[in-house]
Design a protein around this nucleic acid. Structure first.
Lengths: 192, 192
DNA sequence: ACCTGAACACCGTTCAAGT
DNA sequence: ACCTGAACACCGTTCAAGT
């Protein structure tokens, strides 16, 4: 890649991070290009699709979650590991508004630029879930795809302004369905 | 209201019902007006806001849910009544794509045209929840606002194509958190 | 190889003019 | 009282032309 192109790409990404933080995943691409002092077709050249751009913004965090899962697999109780990881997943999925719809679309579309990251994340969750199930700590009738969906739904709740104040408590409620009988390690037990 | 205006209004509503079913809650207003053979400002005159239009489409169903709650309050076990009502709520919220975001926005905004309907619905749920809690059947640390949020989240799951096949099962999972210990009356127990 | 101006077809919103 | 044509400011997407 030519030096000027590299510079444009990096700058576009930095600006996109700001704008998507402000406006969410459906931010105006025109606005991003404008604020990056670049013509719109330049943005399209580097990121042919809105998803390609968001993929680049998200992949880092998604892959970090997969690594984090490996870490947690080796430590603590299976139940606590899963609970902690779920909480961190929701936090990452909430980093930008509107990402949950994207996750849902990407996991189901092999052609999506985000697909690989989502599949990696789901696989990591599936391993943690299986370990907790083997220990009898997690609901047996759940699979990784459903865990992924629950994470997305909980992140979605946090994205809706009027539900956001309840999002933490509702995480606890749903987590208690995934990990029945677990009383330690969740947000509220840890708080008092 | 003048006869021609009434006719326009009714026709707009009928067309909107079709278009919103096809395209979801963010359907093109221009398209609705076009397919109703009416100029765009005519649509704006009758429904000054997209929300005002959707409110009219939804109010009927939302109010029916409130009535349905009254019916269920007087019948069967408190747990079964709540479980049945929750399932029907999710079904109504899934009637049009994108309604869940709208519900979340409307419940938190007193100026929204949908606000009253949402508040009525939440109140109905709160009564059913309180009855189930008094019977020791429902989780004590939940309130009506959280129940409303859970319904919206479950409906949202059903709206995401890739999650939709899991939506029924995830309803059962979440319902089991709201109504712990209940083994009858849910979709899966009823199916075998 | 990379960038840009300019166009195209859309959208929501609003105003002044018609009947 | 009600409806409409037409304009405005936006948007995503793409092409031909520049360096």
């Amino acid at each position: 890649m030519r030096a000027d192109a590299r510079k444009n790409r990096d700058h576009l990404l930095a600006v996109a991070r700001v704008v998507v933080t402000e406006q969410g995943a459906d931010a105006s691409l025109r606005d991003i290009a404008r604020r990056a002092d670049v013509a719109l077709p330049t943005l399209y050249r580097h990121f042919p699709t809105r998803e390609a751009l968001l993929d680049t913004l998200l992949r880092e965090n998604f892959d970090a979650l997969a690594e984090r899962a490996v870490e947690l697999e080796a430590s603590g109780s299976p139940a606590e590991a899963l609970g902690t990881w779920l909480r961190e997943c929701v936090a990452v999925a909430r980093e930008y508004r509107g990402v949950t719809e994207l996750m849902a679309a990407a996991i189901g579309d092999a052609d999506s630029a985000l697909h690989a990251s989502c599949v990696t994340m789901r696989a990591a969750g599936t391993r943690l879930l299986a370990r907790a199930q083997a220990a009898g700590a997690a609901r047996a009738d759940l699979d990784g795809a459903e865990l992924f969906a629950l994470v997305a739904a909980l992140a979605w709740l946090g994205d809706q302004g009027s539900f956001a104040p309840r999002a933490d408590h509702l995480f606890t409620v749903v987590a208690s369905a995934v990990l029945p009988g677990r009383t330690d390690g969740d947000a509220e037990a840890g708080r008092h």
